[in-house]
Amino acid sequence: MAAPHVARALLLVSWLWSGAAAPAVAAGPDYGQVRAVVVRVCDGDTVVVDIPEYPDVIGKAIRVRLTGLDAPELRDRSAEIRRAAQAARRAMETLLPPGTAVTLTGIRRDKYFRLDATISLDGRDVATVLAPAPGP
């Protein structure tokens, strides 16, 4: 049954999102806000988008990593972590299927030349939707 795996994945993502294991966000200029369209989901914290208002050379098939979310890695050595990563990717695919219009804010470049950004869907932060802040 997939429910226990999904629950574990969300718990792990929530723990990672809380800052317990997340590295500091890279310093650098903030490139503002832009509208984008999801092309595909890479994993639980990265998507590929097209930015229609930019020329294709800089706005087509751009990798964007969600700020504030660090999902388990699909290529981890641990089978349990890989299962959690697959569940996180499925959750992201459900929320952001190809063609979904999103807004990117707080855009920065990371050390892998991806964009780090807050991704919003209908005014809601996707990272918060996927891993709600732990409450009392």
Score class of each variant (00 low, 15 high):
65 R>C: 04
35 R>V: 07
113 F>R: 07
125 D>N: 10
55 P>Y: 02
15 W>S: 06
74 L>H: 10
116 D>M: 14
15 W>K: 15
66 L>N: 06
118 T>M: 06
67 T>P: 04
101 A>V: 13
58 I>W: 02
81 I>C: 03
96 L>W: 02
57 V>Q: 02
76 D>C: 02
29 P>Y: 05
100 T>K: 07
42 C>R: 09
83 R>P: 00
133 A>F: 00
31 Y>M: 05
8 R>T: 06
25 V>Y: 03
107 I>S: 03
85 A>I: 02
60 K>Q: 09
63 R>G: 05
109 R>T: 15
103 T>M: 10
53 E>G: 04
134 P>E: 07
98 P>I: 01
68 G>D: 08
30 D>H: 06
63 R>C: 10
58 I>Y: 01
133 A>E: 12
129 V>W: 05
91 A>S: 11
134 P>C: 07
65 R>I: 04
67 T>K: 13
17 W>D: 13
126 V>I: 00
121 L>R: 14
43 D>V: 02
99 G>A: 10
16 L>Q: 15
79 A>H: 11
71 A>E: 05
46 T>D: 13
43 D>E: 06
23 P>Q: 05
111 K>R: 13
74 L>F: 10
77 R>S: 14
23 P>T: 06
50 D>L: 05
126 V>C: 00
85 A>G: 04
116 D>W: 12
3 A>G: 08
110 D>S: 05
61 A>V: 03
11 L>E: 13
87 A>C: 15
122 D>H: 07
52 P>Q: 10
58 I>R: 13
22 A>V: 01
124 R>H: 03
133 A>V: 13
113 F>C: 02
57 V>S: 08
51 I>N: 08
92 M>K: 01
6 V>R: 15
79 A>T: 07
105 T>A: 14
108 R>N: 04
130 L>M: 04
48 V>S: 11
69 L>R: 08
89 R>C: 05
124 R>D: 00
116 D>Q: 13
4 P>T: 14
96 L>C: 02
98 P>K: 04
54 Y>H: 08
22 A>K: 04
98 P>Y: 08
32 G>N: 02
85 A>S: 04
108 R>G: 04
97 P>L: 04
135 G>S: 14
110 D>Q: 06
108 R>M: 04
42 C>M: 11
81 I>G: 01
53 E>L: 09
44 G>L: 09
57 V>P: 00
124 R>E: 04
110 D>Y: 06
99 G>K: 12
1 M>Q: 14
69 L>K: 05
99 G>H: 09
78 S>D: 15
1 M>Y: 15
123 G>N: 12
14 S>Q: 15
126 V>Y: 01
80 E>K: 12
54 Y>D: 01
100 T>H: 01
75 R>H: 14
67 T>M: 13
22 A>S: 08
62 I>F: 02
8 R>Y: 09
47 V>A: 14
131 A>P: 11
28 G>A: 07
121 L>S: 07
97 P>M: 01
83 R>K: 15
75 R>E: 09
87 A>Y: 05
19 G>S: 06
79 A>E: 09
126 V>Q: 00
135 G>L: 12
125 D>V: 06
127 A>T: 02
49 V>R: 14
102 V>T: 07
126 V>E: 00
22 A>M: 09
21 A>F: 03
55 P>K: 00
128 T>H: 07
134 P>G: 09
31 Y>H: 07
120 S>I: 03
132 P>R: 08
